[in-house]
Nucleic acid binder design. Structure first.
Lengths: 218, 218, 218, 218
DNA sequence: TATGAATGAGTCTTCATTCAT
DNA sequence: CATGAATGAAGACTCATTCAT
């Protein structure tokens, strides 16, 4: 009994170590230079060993994406459980999303910035769907927050799906650029983010007055 | 003299042909499958010849980015020369930006979605800067349009740079997601874009009434 | 005792299942794509388990050859038990041989077309011999049929061994080519076979008149 | 000029060395164990260098087959130019075919015994055809010899194509078995071959009396 | 008896790059 | 100016096999 348990635990451990190594490689060298070889070297196993845990390279990437979306979902959930006024909660969610990208830039890139790989086999279709499923659960948190605001009357009533999609697009805009174009001479990051959030909420019809501490009009 | 001139012209011609070939490969096979070999094959020169015009592969990518920004700049300019009311002109510019991404998805990805390569040598720093320069000239068109609107009083007066950066981020949000996540179940593209533009303008304080043809409230 | 017996029976069962799986893989994917992995997967045992029953991959191949010759022997026997005139019986045997190859093309290839593996160890020598033993018993059926014809006076009397070997070679000629070179523009298969059988019998001195339904002289 | 010539010569030399190395590997280790790596090692070049001369592994195999058929064709031609009586010429051709297999056993196996690889791409189709073309030119020598005999009235008149195909099958039968099953206790090779040729000619209706020096009747 | 884990050697292939010419 | 030849490193992946349990 104990043996079986230990085996299972060890198996899972290695599974995780592979993912962590791959993730770290993303962070260090970027997506393009992640290879099974390097992953193997990093965990000090033979390259072929990885195939005992993952069917192929895509499955590793897919796994990382899934894991990553879960992290995001959790981050959003930790906000949703708090007892905040709807608009503040929405703003906190959006801010949290941005922060998530800043915290895990390479994961964010892998998951949300890179183009989808052209699906070749049936498996790919299936995997993409399952990644999408996890992704959607994060997306739904956002939609929920928006719905709450509409019902509370603090933002304009509108098609929820449409609003959710466009809000996601907006929030992705700042996140992806901050993450991928770090050498662009962006203004002060916090100022930028808060102003951006103001604008997003304004675009939802929220009755807020945009305030920029460093405002230099014109 | 004539000889020297012709030589110079020929030199530049090949330089351009290389870039065009690379660009076409991006468009056809995606970024990942662009290789010096394929570029060389397409222009019917030896792979090694390319090294007479570009230091290495990165330099080609960088060059393409530069070229690409120019295309975008031209597209924007062709709108700016038209005699439109400020707000309409701004909206047309934003729409044109999105359309640019949809028209040249791989170029858009290479230029604006992929993370910047980690600079290793001095050259990289220089090149990145010069790409940025060209990028900035596109960015400035946008800033100009915004300034025009502010001066005309059709949008809220605010820090132009801040407004320009955040507006670009917004418009990049929808463009990048439409381009990279084509399998996501987005709503009807035109509806999405027009609604998005409404929101962007609203977030700028424009006095418009968002109208969604398929509106299903709540 | 009962336990020991059951154990022995089970042991033999798995042994056979391995061979059957390997054989089926030959038939489905061709020789080249047979691997211990796939065999194991098919019988739902671990790859390493196979090593309890076979020393290595070669031993499996060898075993299949043995089994296969038995099938052929049985096919021939089922003809020999019938009460046919000698010449007809011989012709039926030859036709049955060809049909055997057409029915089990991959097995035929493995057994009779591929070159013998270079023997490296003592075991190989032994195994090859034992394969030959089984093969010989099939071969002997043929010799028996020929002897019967000679004794009945329907074919020329000659050295039986010599006649048997050359007859086998002849019949192998058509079988192997039909099996391995299916893209060659062979004439109608049945016409070809019957004509071939005519010629084989003629070459044995049988008093037959070759008849080709589609004959176009010269 | 001299440079260009030398280059071309060197290029062809390496091309040939690759083919020879591959051919030798066939001869030593059998078809299955030929790999680009081993070829490269043998000619003391980097594996990737081979790709400058051959598109892929299949092209090497195909090239060898082509070369091989040419050798066979030449061997047959060298007989056809001799001024022999038709039947003797035919017999010499057939004997030469067998001898060709015995002289180049591994080439014979690769070309004529192994099953055709399943074509995957358009290229394969093309290559197979061109191999077939070369193969057919060898086959046509045989058909020519048969036709000559028919016209001379020394063998039975019959459909030439049918006769040629079945004659090839016969001659392939002895050749392939002698080559691939060298451990089978075949009778004395020369005796076997001459008896076999007697039988082949008899099956064509030639008026010969089979004579076996070691004849032990019954 | 059976296996799960692991491996190392091996497969074909592509690539960016160098260098003598 | 242009190239042909060559390479070494790297890519993903498969395989037969071993061994502790």
């Amino acid at each position: 009994m104990g043996v079986t348990e230990r085996r299972a635990r060890e198996k899972e451990e290695l599974h995780d170590r592979i993912l962590k190594a791959a993730s770290a490689l993303f962070a260090e060298d970027g997506y393009a230079s992640v290879s099974l070889r390097k992953i193997a070297e990093r965990i000090e196993y033979a390259p072929s060993t990885i195939y005992l845990y993952f069917k192929d390279k895509d499955e590793i990437v897919t796994s990382i994406c899934r894991q990553n979306f879960l992290l995001l979902t959790e981050a959003l959930d930790s906000i949703l459980v708090r007892d905040l006024p709807p608009l503040e909660m929405l703003r906190a969610c959006l801010r949290s999303y941005i922060q998530f990208g800043l915290d895990y830039p390479d994961h964010y890139v892998v998951t949300l910035c890179l183009p989808e790989p052209a699906p070749r086999s049936d498996r790919d279709v299936h995997d993409n769907l399952s990644v999408l499923d996890v992704g959607l659960s994060a997306f739904n948190r956002l939609a929920g927050g928006l719905l709450g605001c509409m019902q509370a009357g603090v933002i304009r009533k509108a098609d929820v799906e449409l609003t959710a999609q466009t809000t996601w697009m907006m929030i992705h805009g700042i996140t992806s650029l901050l993450v991928t174009k770090s050498s662009f001479p962006f203004l002060d990051r916090n100022r930028l983010i808060e102003h951006y959030l103001d604008r997003v909420l304004l675009s939802l019809g929220a009755a807020i007055v945009p305030q920029d501490p460093d405002e230099k009009i014109l």
